[in-house]
Write a protein that binds this DNA or RNA. Structure first.
Lengths: 194, 194, 194, 194
DNA sequence: CAGTAACCGAGACGGTACGTCGAGTCTTACA
DNA sequence: TGTAAGACTCGACGTACCGTCTCGGTTACTG
């Protein structure tokens, strides 16, 4: 796909990357609602108009800037054959993200943006929830095959519970301790019923 | 405990209530980051300074305005003796809150405020998470007593999973359907293991 | 002298004119210290920031808005050959300005701004006093030439006395009557000595 | 006339003096339009209401605070028999006032207040112009008697010229030099005519 | 000599305006 | 035509004062 060969100067992919990078820095340092496009433009060495040429609004920029491969889906679910261990490993990798302060700040910025803006929520669903659900579902289906998951397990509930609880702990600034992860895995596999 | 007997005119509780009410209206209609203190002051018939006299920041105002008995803890957990039915009933009552558009808007505003501001997160923890955890824990302890919950169930994981998943569905604009609730209760009691 | 060729949009001279015009209206209607930049901006159809881009302070705006060719120097000193008649005619033209209520209001605003702000005082000196002194001095020099003014007359004292007395009468709301003007001219030419 | 014998606590003259003193300090330090009643009240150790009990408005306070015996009339016109020397001495005493920075600041504050507020202008006229005119007139009348002033001199023009020129020099921050004073006296006695 | 009326310091109140910052748009000169 | 720069309108921010009102508390006249 040739880039259309239009007249005039070609749009600078470098500028776009600089914008996204500057956005992430701002998000980490100040959070979602203290974001300033003026500051981003200055930091990226870019005119404000260039930002608006790529992204129609602040939330679109944030959606793109945060979600594009820089977040949770980065932590793919491993497949060692031992499902319980794999889920635990996945949660541990999320814990590591949440313990780097920049990671927690980005996640919180994403939560705020998602809660406040419908279009960000849609993008979030496509790019994070759907991907995670896909990976997790695929892994669980293999688990059903090897007998470690029962055939009628409520996959949606599992996915949303796990993602939801992680976001909730980050949102409320509670650490994801080992003990908590163990309890969560235990609950997920065995339930609390007697 | 004397009421301090400070000099000067006594602070107007009526003004404070008007501020909180106007804040809730604004939150429902516009969301957290489009909140305008100018508009709130005008709607409440109050000087802007009076708002700042009571609340040091936008987030403090939102924390107070939203959390004070106007949210989730309003939905207490029932106790009919049948724990599974009680948890289901509790989730259904949350669904009803989330389906009134004002309920969902307030919850989303709270999520945004909590994610962005540490002090709001602290308040949220005290006034929502702690209360819910307390109620749920008490109910589960009775469940252990009557044998419907195993003695070593990870209570924290249960509480944060249930609250987290509800907030996650509201944040991402996914409905809390009956089917989802059933799956969630099933997962919580029985786990997904085979 | 090239027009600088700076990057970015060129500053809007139209906006500046609208600001000055709105300022004069406000000054006439409300006076110097009841001036509101919010109102001026609204009346001029201009953002407040644009006012601050042109003028660093309220007084600078007033200095510019009032002094720029809209004041006393507008009343140049005539030269008919009869110096006494010329000075009288000049004072009469000042009387006419001071009798239009908008004229008096503008003069009083200028007095207030000048008295309160050093930089306005400097501008006033350059744009009003210096110009008037120049015109009057030139006229008096011609008067010396034709013998109607003595060669060692204290020009500075003449200029400051005439300007000062006019401003004083306007400031204290005393009218510039014909009788007063005649007395003043008499004093200026002949002195009060016997 | 007894002071009415009203019931209730008598108004505190000490408070009133403290208010006036604090007002003068503020005027000297910040000028007329940056005056703050809150600051004055705090500095005077007085409630704001007390100020309003004595003075209905900011300008009334300034008029009272500044004019009451703390200004130009303090410099009475001497009478040594030599009128020219007396007028010169009076102008020199005004120069001394204008050279103490607090003196010039108070005069400028008064000018600003007078220019902006009609009621202050009235008071100014009564308490400064009228008094000065009275003293000067009395002295000039004696001058007529001893032959140093011609009988038909325009007294009003003399008074307003002298007061006006002094205020004008202070307002525009020009010093009252000896040379200027000499020129002014020369002009006043002999005129500029040949 | 108790009542009560006017004062006092203090400070909260509803407002208006300040000077600054940010969003999103528009207009230059340059590449 | 795209780009960096930057001015534009609009609107919100958090602060400072204004002039009023309301506290608890203090005088001083009055019945």
């Amino acid at each position: 796909v040739t880039p259309a060969a239009r007249p005039g100067r070609t749009r600078s992919e470098a500028a776009r990357q600089a914008i996204l990078e500057a956005t992430r820095v701002e998000l980490i340092e100040r959070g979602y609602d203290k974001l300033s496009l003026d500051r981003i433009a200055a930091a990226a060495g870019v005119g404000k108009q260039t930002i608006y040429r790529w992204y129609p609004s602040k939330s679109a920029l944030v959606a793109e800037g945060v979600l594009l491969g820089h977040l949770i889906p980065g932590a793919g679910i491993p497949d060692t054959g031992d499902l319980r261990a794999d889920v635990t490993a996945w949660l541990v990798s999320l814990r590591e993200i949440s313990e780097r302060s920049e990671g927690a700040a980005l996640v919180r910025a994403t939560i705020a943006a998602t809660a406040e803006d419908e279009t960000v929520a849609l993008r979030y669903d496509e790019q994070v929830t759907a991907v995670t659900r896909g990976e997790l579902t695929a892994r669980l289906v293999r688990g059903i095959a090897d007998g470690s998951v029962r055939g009628d397990a409520p996959i949606d509930a599992v996915v949303d519970s796990l993602v939801g609880v992680v976001l909730f702990r980050i949102m409320t600034r509670q650490p994801l301790t080992s003990a908590f992860i163990d309890g969560l895995v235990d609950l997920t596999f065995s339930g609390m019923g007697s």
